[in-house]
Amino acid sequence: MRALLVEEDDQGQKSASVKEVDESQMPEANVTVAVEYSTVNYKDGLCIGPGGGLVRTYPHVPGIDFAGTVEVSSDDRYKPGDKVVLTGWRVGEAWWGGYAEKARVKADWLVPLPEGLTTRQAMAVGTAGFTAMLAVMALEDHGLKPENGEVLVTGAAGGVGSVATAILAHLGYEVAAVTGRPETEAYLRGLGASRIVPREELNETVKRPLESETWAGCVDAVGGAMLARVLGQMKYGASVAAVGLAGGAGLPATVVPFLLRGVNLLGIDSVMQPYENRVRAWERIAKDLPMEKLEAMVQPATLGDLPKLGADILKGRVKGRVVVDVTA
């Protein structure tokens, strides 16, 4: 099978290239999937390149997402011909992933492809879109409604932010999209953003722990100083769903927004999410993510494009969603 193989030399230098790999090198598990599509996330950039502490052994096949057709299964839940999706479970990090024509994984890690979605559309969604839907669901579970006011999306031109913007707009929310790239304004408005907020307005800390109550909810992909600033701008009882740390892992904030305004900070993890919530999220994606807006986010790619794309996403140069046709 063809795969993007990342290898490490004696000096610890990593290199990634498309190679023919014998199936006997694949890890042992109970389901083999003929992979049709994968995608590119920040973690993939790390695994293609420096490793980021995510990859345990080399050679390695990255790709934390994939969608395809079951080829062999010894688990009763899946049979040959079934369409499936995989995100998370450290596949593509500690386990060989989706940047190959075949993947062998545990049945527990798979989810049936939702009715109404193709495998290509599922990878246009990928971990980024799955995470975005988990964030929207968490905000809704904590009381967010369209009539509550504007919802902020930080890092809006990235993968998670793009899908979150499209979903929220489709559900009737006013979306304020934060971006540091002015050239993405038309793209974000096309996804449904009603306001564009320049990144520089929010990426500096202030001494005041509270500012004017502005946002009814927030999907935050940035973290760091921006998240600290946003917490002080949330309306009473509002929630922030934290999904990323593009701006840093630190949080230079105070507890004042939590104590005086009842603000909620909701952590969103997509990797170890329980099966039932995965199915719920994918069903919501099939229903609440407009496919025409999803298509507007897509940048097509092949296995041979991945070394460059991996480097680009680490530098913040990838807009929207990359869909990798592993068979091309």
Rank of each mutant, 00 (worst) to 15 (best):
P307R: 07
V160T: 11
T184F: 06
G81V: 11
T118G: 08
P198Q: 01
K43F: 06
S194F: 02
V323A: 05
V206S: 07
G244V: 12
V240Q: 08
E36C: 01
V85R: 06
V160P: 00
K14A: 03
E292F: 00
W95H: 14
T57I: 06
Q11D: 15
D305G: 01
T179F: 11
R104T: 15
L266A: 09
L171D: 10
V318M: 10
E101N: 11
T205F: 09
G116W: 08
G129V: 05
K43D: 05
G161T: 03
Y78T: 02
A107L: 13
S73E: 13
G51V: 09
L117G: 04
G250T: 15
V18T: 03
L171R: 15
R2N: 08
V61C: 06
A242N: 15
Q25A: 08
T214M: 08
Q299W: 03
E101W: 07
V151D: 04
D22P: 11
L309Q: 02
A164K: 01
D10M: 02
D10T: 12
I167Q: 12
V55L: 09
K319T: 15
G316A: 08
A281S: 03
A228F: 04
G223D: 12
R261C: 04
D220A: 12
P62A: 07
E276Q: 08
A156P: 03
G12A: 08
Y58R: 02
V243M: 07
V243I: 07
I285N: 05
L134Y: 08
G158T: 04
G52M: 07
I167S: 12
R120Q: 07
E93L: 06
Y99L: 08
V91Q: 02
R56P: 00
T254H: 13
K106I: 00
V324M: 06
Y99N: 09
K145W: 00
T184C: 02
D75L: 10
K14D: 00
H60W: 11
G81P: 03
R2A: 04
T118I: 03
Y99W: 14
D22N: 15
W89E: 05
